[in-house]
Nucleic acid binder design. Structure first.
Lengths: 233, 233
DNA sequence: AGAACAAAGTGATCATCATCACTTTTCATC
DNA sequence: GATGAAAAGTGATGATGATCACTTTGTTCT
C-alpha cells in the first residue's frame, strides 16, 4: 500500500524534531497498511523486524500462552509505535499485536529505523526513554506478581486505572470500565477472581458500578489495602 | 576518588568504538569508587541518576520488598553497567545494587552519559540493544510468573543456568551451585520450595548434587516437564 | 578439633485461587 | 421487543505452595 493521502509520520512524536524533509522521506520508505478490528498485525511467531507507527486506530500488545491464556501488556493509540524490540535487535517478536479498531500503520524497515534513530539524537533520546519506561513498567509488574496475591493485584490495577482521575475528595472514576477478562489478563489472574474482587469492593462501599463507568468512592482505602499486604511479611 | 592507575573505561564494550581520546576524556569525568562486599552502591530510594560502569568486581541487582522478601534481577561483572534507567529518564531508581565482591566502578553523570550515547551511534546502538534485551528478559519473566507454578519456575531456572553447558549427550553442569535462597529470589518462590524441587529431581535421577557442582543428567526431560504445564491448559 | 553460623532438608498446616459448572444479567441486532 | 451472544456473578472443590518450626548437614574461623 502506498502512502495514503493525508497520512504521514507527522503525528509521531518520535520524529517531531527530525525535520520535514527527512520525515517525508521516511514516510515514503514506509509500507502503509490498514487493519480491521481483531486483525493481527504482528504474530509472535513471525520472523519479521519491521517497526510500526500508528497513524490512526488502536492496538493491543498481548501474548497468548500455549494454554490459550491471554497475557495483556499494553494498548497503543495514534502517535505510538510497536515492534521496536525486533527492530533494534533483530530478535524474535516478543509479543503479538492485534488491532482493536480500524487502524492505519506505517511499517518501517528495521535498518531504516536503526539508521534514523542512531543518527538523530532527537530520536535516540525519546526512544531510549521509551525503552526505559518499558523496563520500569515490566519491573513493577514483576514486583506485583512476586509480592501481591491475585486479589491485591486487581486492587492495584483499579488504582492504576483510577489514579489519573483522582479528585481532591478522594474519589475517582474509571470510564469506560474494562471487561473483567481484560483486567484479568493484565494482572494474570482468572476472570472469576476479578468479578469476586469487584463484588467485595462494591459490598464494602469502596467502589460502585454505574451504567457506563466505575466510581471509586475511597481511593485511599483501596491504596491501604494493597500496601498492607506488601508490608505484611 | 580520582581515576585509579590502571583503571579506565577501556574494558567497557559500550565505549569500544568511541575513540581513545574521547574515552579518556570520559574516564576523567567519571567519579571512580570502590565498594566492598555487601556494600550498597545504589539504594532504590535514593534520588540520584549517575550511570555506573564496572571496571572490576561483581554486583547484584535486587529489590527488597517491604516485607524483606528479596526479588533478584541480575548479576553484572566487569565491562557491564547499571543505573542506566535513571540516567536516561531521570526517574527514581528501579532497583538496588549491591557489591558482591570488591568492586571498582566509574560513576558517570547522567547528562554526560546521555550526551555521549545520543551523539555516538556506536554507543546508541549497543545501548538500545541492551535495553531491548532487558525488556525481553522481563517479559519472559512475566510470562513465567503468569503461566508456570512455583515448581516449574524452579525447573525453568535450572534450565537457564544449565543451558550454556549442554552437552550432546543431554547432560549439563551448573557450577557453582547457587544457594537455594538466591534461586528462590530469582523465580519468586520460597527457599523451601527450591529445596523440595531439588529433592524431587534428585530422586527422579534428573539431577545429581556433586560436591561443588550440580549435574543435570537429563536436560530434555527437564525441558518437557516445564513445557507440559505451559501447554496443559 | 570444636564452636558458631549459614545453608539445606522436611513434615504439618492453612490460605489462596484456579478451575469447573452453572445461572443471571447485559448488550447488540435484527 | 425478541433472540442470541457476551459478560458477569457465584458456589463448590482441589491443588498448590507459603509459612512455621525444627533437624540435619556444611562451612568457616580461630
Amino acid at each position: 500500500m502506498s502512502q495514503p493521502t493525508g497520512a504521514s509520520l507527522n503525528t509521531i512524536p518520535l520524529f517531531a524534531e527530525i525535520g520535514d524533509a527527512e520525515r517525508d522521506r521516511l514516510s515514503q520508505l514506509c509500507s502503509w497498511r490498514r487493519y480491521g478490528p481483531q486483525e493481527q498485525i504482528i504474530d509472535r511467531d513471525a520472523d519479521t523486524s519491521d517497526v510500526y507507527f500508528i497513524a490512526e486506530g488502536r492496538v493491543r500488545i498481548v501474548i497468548y500462552s500455549l494454554s490459550g491464556r491471554e497475557i495483556a501488556f499494553d494498548e497503543l493509540v495514534e502517535g505510538q509505535y510497536f515492534g521496536e524490540l525486533a527492530g533494534i535487535d533483530r530478535g524474535r517478536r516478543s509479543a503479538s499485536v492485534v488491532a482493536l479498531r480500524p487502524t492505519l500503520v506505517a511499517a518501517m524497515n528495521a535498518a531504516t529505523f536503526m539508521d534514523t534513530v542512531c543518527n538523530n539524537p532527537s530520536c535516540a533520546k525519546p526512544l531510549l526513554q521509551h525503552l526505559a519506561r518499558m523496563v520500569r513498567r515490566a519491573t513493577d509488574r514483576i514486583m506485583d506478581l512476586s509480592t501481591l496475591g491475585a486479589n491485591n493485584r486487581v486492587h492495584a490495577e483499579i488504582l492504576r486505572l483510577a489514579r489519573a482521575t483522582l479528585q481532591p475528595d478522594n474519589t475517582a472514576t474509571i470510564k469506560p470500565i474494562p471487561v473483567h477478562s481484560d483486567i484479568a489478563a493484565r494482572v494474570s489472574t482468572a476472570r472469576e477472581t476479578v468479578a469476586r474482587v469487584f463484588g467485595q469492593l462494591a459490598q464494602a462501599g469502596i467502589v460502585e458500578r454505574r451504567s457506563d463507568h466505575l466510581l471509586v468512592h475511597d481511593f485511599d482505602r483501596l491504596e491501604e489495602m494493597v500496601e498492607e499486604v506488601r508490608g505484611d511479611f
